[in-house]
Design a protein around this nucleic acid. Structure first.
Lengths: 327, 327
DNA sequence: CAATTATGCGTAAACAGTTACGCATCTTTT
DNA sequence: AAAAGATGCGTAACTGTTTACGCATAATTG
């Protein structure tokens, strides 16, 4: 005896109702009495009936699927920044009953990513800004009317973005250095994040020319090697802001290994407040970005866009200075 | 002028061929000349035609979608263990052109998770072992013939698992302590991982009774508070193995704050080798589990199961002791 | 050279749902 | 009490593919 598969037709006929009624029992559209709805739902549990995902999405020309595209990780390097955003996105998606796909973006995966966006399996995407590839994906989405949300700053994008107020974050750090009487500040970080540098100068109330800027990439090793350069070009450096926490860890490790005291000789502030920041020795003073909240906000924004809401404007998440032991 | 949507019918008629031919150009089944295949594929790029995902999966009753279910994160706690496995899974899925879904498992999300498994949108799942919920999901998959792979040890599962050789890992740690002349070892970690404890005793070549076991949970704070208990009950402790790296960090932080030297007074070994382990001060000596490789292996195993392969047996990933500065 | 097999392609039947439309029945209004 | 409106449910059209089947034509065989 072959086990007949339980599609809507056989399920409906078992109950003695039409397929339309069954469909209405699960959906929101269509008129159905509360009594039959309950009856059908309870029978569905008994029989183990579940509406087929593909058939449903095919006919209704939409799915609840959301995709999160993240930049490639540097091999062996922890990208806890992305990680924590991703968990925020995942949690919020789950709460909204949106299945979430995740896709790493690297040159060879671009075809696959575009296909995912265009083949109708997804009804909205969240992309982290930063690489040419991510801009390409956003363009694809935009050209084809796929709802999208950008995390971070991407040129030409304002309406559908969730950003962090980087300049305010570094301003807070600069202000803290100023308030604690630091005279010779330095900034370590990528070339490209102009906002962070500007905010820092502002908070310090110093002309940018009096701040040492070292463009040292973004990894632990970059932070480590940055230390020597900084000390060589400005031996009296007494305070350092790093563009992210991992950089700060590298810098501190190098400083400690040369016998410098942190924060005694040099005060160090990180950025992001990834979860291990507080566990480092010394515990990092850092600018907290509320990364999980960022993830949530992205999902909520995307949800509004997918629901056709028109009055949409970009959002931003707050940041705050968390003072621990490194500064 | 309304832009007619480009389904297979209008695309085929534009090219002057049948829908079957178009379909065959993309699929692997069916006979088609190499010439027309190339023609169709190139025209598809021109026209921007892509086969609709749902229609395709509906009729062929399968999708390439894979789902990864992970245990809930403790709020505010970094679970880099899961994180790194997840990136491994994500990378490998991407390589195989499998769209990957991720789903956190918590009691309230169980209905949603089960629905995902049963509604036909997914053709295979990867579940991390450890909670009753994860066992429930595996059972659901098993009962309904959905291919699944378990990461870690789950009772009753052998064939479709990818495990780490925990006992060998702790054995290596124990052996290292023995070889470096440690006399009073302790072990900090969860009650439940019997394998780790057994391996440790074995490596030490000591009767378990001579080892101090402290059951201290799995978080940084647990490691931190464990220190005091350990020192109180065995002040002469000279070596500690922690069930994971975060625990080890907590333990070390507490020890340092009380003026103990690591590894001088107490040698500490972690477990997992999460990516920040090497950046900690002191850099953690730890048992590396090759978590990304674990993710890859899970995907490859799942792939074989989904392809109907019969001769399947569980796999295991190697581990090795990475000696750094903490022991 | 006839018979057989292989190849390339079109026709049409699935796949499993949703929803516009229509028709009874029940409720409300005038 | 008749007319109008609301409610509940069934019929059937539609979504965009894949693929079994059939039919020409081309290639291979005896």
């Amino acid at each position: 005896m072959i086990k007949q598969k339980l599609n809507i037709k056989v399920f409906a006929s078992r109950l003695g109702v039409s397929t339309a009624t069954v469909s209405r029992a699960f959906g929101t559209k269509g008129r159905i009495s509360e009594k039959t709805r309950r009856m059908i739902i309870s029978k569905a549990e008994n029989f183990g009936y579940r509406a087929n995902y593909h058939a449903r999405n095919l006919i209704s020309r939409k799915s609840q699927n959301v995709a999160f595209f993240y930049p490639p990780l540097i091999k062996g390097e922890p990208d806890y920044f992305i990680t924590e955003i991703m968990f925020g996105v995942s949690g919020a998606s789950s709460h909204n009953s949106y299945p979430l796909q995740i896709h790493p973006i690297y040159p060879e995966s671009m075809e696959f990513c575009k296909d995912m966006i265009l083949n109708g399996s997804i009804s909205g995407i969240i992309v982290t800004a930063g690489t040419p590839e991510s801009s390409g994906l956003v363009k694809t989405a935009k050209n084809n009317g796929i709802p999208y949300v950008v995390i971070g700053h991407m040129s030409g994008e304002r309406q559908y973005t969730v950003t962090f107020d980087n300049s305010r974050g570094t301003m807070l750090a600069g202000k803290y250095f100023k308030d604690t009487g630091k005279k010779n500040p330095a900034y370590i970080g990528g070339l490209f994040d102009r906002r962070k540098r500007i905010g820092f100068s502002e908070g310090l109330g110093l002309h940018a020319g009096r701040i040492l800027f070292d463009n040292g990439g973004s990894t632990f090793h970059d932070g480590f090697s940055s230390f020597e350069r900084v000390i060589k070009s400005a031996p009296d450096t007494d305070s350092v802001l790093c563009a992210n926490d991992i950089l700060a860890m590298g810098f501190i490790k190098a400083a400690l290994s040369k016998g410098y005291k942190i924060p005694g000789d040099i005060a160090v502030i990180g950025f992001d407040d990834i979860k291990v920041a507080r566990y480092f020795s010394p515990a990092l003073t850092t600018v907290r970005l509320h990364l999980d909240e960022l993830g949530e906000k992205s999902v909520n924004l995307l949800k509004r866009i997918m629901n056709g809401e028109k009055m949409i404007s970009g959002e931003s998440v707050d940041c705050e200075l968390i003072v621990r032991d490194s500064a």
